[in-house]
Amino acid sequence: MNFSPNSPFMYVICGIVILFVIAQSIFFLVRALRQAKVLKMDQKMIRRTISASAIFTIAPALAILIGVISLSQFLGLPLPWLRLSVLGALTYELPAAQSAASAMNLHSTSELVTDPVTFSAISWVMTLGILSGIVVVLFGLRKIQKGVVSIQEKDSSKGTLLTDSLFLGMISAFSGLLFADIRSGLPGFIPLAVALVSMVCMGLCGLLIRKAGWQWLEQYALPLCMLCGMAAAIPLTSWMGGV
């Protein structure tokens, strides 16, 4: 049978899985909305949460789309479309595809894979290499949640400290990453400069929320500041010699 990574068959099987994930998202969304009514939560705030989350998602989703386009030169469109709509992330999918390709003695990722066995090996590696998280969620999430609750019940100050530490663990690791390239010279400071622009923008939003009473801005401040930072990256990269 003739093989093509862009065959209708590939679109159909990937489309089915994507429809499944859409169904799951709608299922959880509807249940959470019902629970919000049971808890008598402010419905205006719920609507703001939905619109702010949707706006926040657009820019990162476009970045994921760029990843789909770049991987499509190597794997066709359907498989990257599926892989980046579910489970994985761009930082994982490309190394996984490269690792599988090199195991099959294919060293270039700039040409479309036309051998079905190589393509099949790549799809197996991309799928199996990222399953650990979801398997732990399936079998261990309840125990993890119980553990956190029991810490909070035993000593509430320890429980609060644990949650705050987890938040700060993530923030500090990703903030530290901003400094990773600064020893390489001026272009290495670009991530730091972008973060500073976004930080100043967030500071201004905070002032507007507190001093001018712009409470509506609270939910939209993060996507707005992120877009400002991204927009600033264009002139900053040009000035600091990143291109």
Binding site: A59, P60, L62, A63, I66, F167, L168, I171, F174, S175, L177, L178, I190, P191, L192, V194, A195, L196, V197, S198, M199, C201, M202, G203, G206, A221, L222, C225, M226, L227, C228, G229, M230, A231, A232, A233, I234, L236, T237, S238, G242, V243
Partner: peptide, 21 residues
């Protein structure tokens, strides 16, 4: 537009970092 999409993580961490730190 490439620099803008390359800068998503720093742009996100600047704003989010200020809030939590």
């Amino acid at each position: 537009l490439k620099p803008a999409f390359d800068a998503i993580m720093p742009a996100l961490m600047g704003a989010l970092g200020l809030v939590y730190i």
